[in-house]
Amino acid sequence: MMRRARLAVLAAAILLLVPGFLLAQAEPGELAAQTLGRAYWHVFVGYAAAWILVGGWAISMTRRLARLERQLGKD
């Protein structure tokens, strides 16, 4: 169970990083000035999707592992 909790915290921290990027990018910094400034939304969605998918898969695997452990404990 400890391991699961640690993993959950790690996953949450990683997911929190994504809006961090969003904020950092939304400021009219020099990066924004040198671009067209229209495609940001798509890029963020794309890069967030990578985390969500890969993270979701990892979480589903740990859940399946936990279920297996429960099953073992019961018998």
Binding site: F21, A24, Q34, T35, L36, G37, Y47
Partner: peptide
């Protein structure tokens, strides 16, 4: 890689920021 993409690498001229995809 995420740091590179969002804070380091230069934006491509023709495609703009979308090229980061």
């Amino acid at each position: 890689f995420y740091w590179q993409v969002f804070f380091w690498v230069n934006t491509e001229r023709t495609m703009g920021v979308a090229q980061r995809i």
